Computed example of a mutant assay.
Amino acid sequence: MDTWKIREIKAEDNQQVKHLIQSVLVEMGVPKVGTAYEDKALDDMTAEYDGDRKTYFIVEENNKVIGGAGIAALKGTEEPICELQKMYFLPEARGRGIGTKMINTCMDFGRQHSFEKCYIETLPYMESARKLYHKSGFETVEKPVGDTGHYNCTVYMLRNL
């Protein structure tokens, strides 16, 4: 039986989520500029994802946030494309099928909110993440779609919902 669950973020999760995202980015050697590390949204993820057609899911185990991912309309395009955002997991969450379940949860949310495609940006050296995205139906595309503001993320991926 799984000891973890996926649920929508609550205000009391904000600091844990910010710490989780920034610590994983540091662990992976990600630049602190031009990536999610410097996003102002990290200060209040509950407020950032409060609204129509967007949400942030967290993975909770033993009252600890061990992962998370957001889904929202992709900025900078009129097309019905959502973006998988800020998907990160602590080491203890990896290799347990949680990432696949999280992607499926986010894709279901996207379909329920009339998005037709989902987009994600990542980094070339985040190999495990790229493998997971490919396994989940994402395909690499040549150039960025929309405007995420993450100019240091150079791998662009898209999938149909």
Rank of each mutant, 00 (worst) to 15 (best):
V65E: 12
R111H: 04
E48Q: 15
D44R: 13
V59W: 03
G95T: 01
F109A: 05
M126W: 07
V65F: 10
N104R: 13
D108C: 00
Y56G: 06
H113L: 10
K40P: 12
F89K: 03
G110H: 01
M102A: 01
M45T: 04
I58L: 09
I81F: 14
Y125P: 08
M45A: 06
L123V: 09
L74R: 08
E83G: 14
Y49L: 14
N63V: 02
G70T: 03
T122V: 02
V33S: 15
C118F: 04
G99H: 01
L90R: 09
F57W: 06
K75F: 10
L42D: 05
F115H: 06
E116K: 14
K75Q: 15
D39F: 06
A47H: 09
I103T: 01
G51Q: 09
M126G: 00
L42R: 11
M102V: 03
E38N: 14
D39G: 12
I71Y: 02
Y119P: 11
D50E: 11
I98V: 02
R96K: 09
F109W: 06
Y88K: 01
D108K: 10
Y125M: 14
E61K: 10
M126K: 05
T122W: 04
L123I: 11
G68S: 04
E127Y: 02
F89R: 04
G68R: 02
E116F: 04
V33P: 14
A47W: 04
G51M: 07
N104D: 15
